[in-house]
Nucleic acid binder design. Sequence first.
DNA 1: CCTCAGGTCATCA
DNA 2: TGATGACCTGAG
Length: 279
Amino acid sequence: MSYKKIKKTVKNFNIEEICNSGQCFRMEAMENGRYRVLAKDRCLEIEQKGEVCTFFCEEADFETFWKPYFDLERDYALCISKIPAEDLYLTRAARFGSGIRILKQDLWEMIVSFLISQQNNIVRIRRCIQNICEKYGEERPDMYGNTYYSFPKPEVLAELDEDELKACNLGYRSKYVVRTARSVVTEEINLEKVAKMDYAAAKEELLKLFGVGEKVADCICLFALHQMQAFPVDTHIRQALEQNYADGFPMEQYEGMQGILQQYIFYYELKGKKEQENV
DNA sequence: CCTCAGGTCATCA
DNA sequence: TGATGACCTGAG
């Protein structure tokens, strides 16, 4: 398998933080220190040394797929600079996760991933998705000739029995995924149209899917549609806001970047607090 | 044996 | 509109 090394210097990019920020469930650290990313039917390896990242892929793939995927064109430092210094909590959270990027992932993949995410922990979410890919995805060779699996298309999952995905450890979420796959295949919900809608319209459409509620719809809007206004509120975020913003979070101050802040807060609550305890 | 994990749905007032 | 319980599963 031939491949190229594409070197880029990128600020506010930390592949480890991205990997651990809980928005992508098919990214992992390899033994040699590189990271492997599976997205849709693709596979990419990344190596990072300081601000220099090496992407192992074809030039055309990098420009059309991976550059938007990692949101490389956006100035995250500019976003962080809009946080007022008086807001100690947000300043700290943004500093802790300053290498996070909002990934632009595949719409169908995010729908399934966040259907599975509800009342679930990240380790098990990853395993569920890996199980589904291995069972229903297609085999592909990576750059060493080893096999990885693509994310199964809606047509494949729509054929299944409602409880069939319990075999992949989905539990009660199995019927959410299968019924949603059917809605997509019949174009009751047309994903190509959803992808072109604005935030409000896209969210309203996604909420029609069985198993998609407020929080999951916002995750899909943020991580697939790149709607930066989306601010998914889960248990961690709710708790963090209650603790640090008694008068309410000043959402209006951060027009068009709420989703980025949500990720800083989420990642800080998930990883930052533990790190403090260990010190 | 409990409780919890990136919630949502059905049901009832 | 808002509150309440059920729901798969496995790790701690």
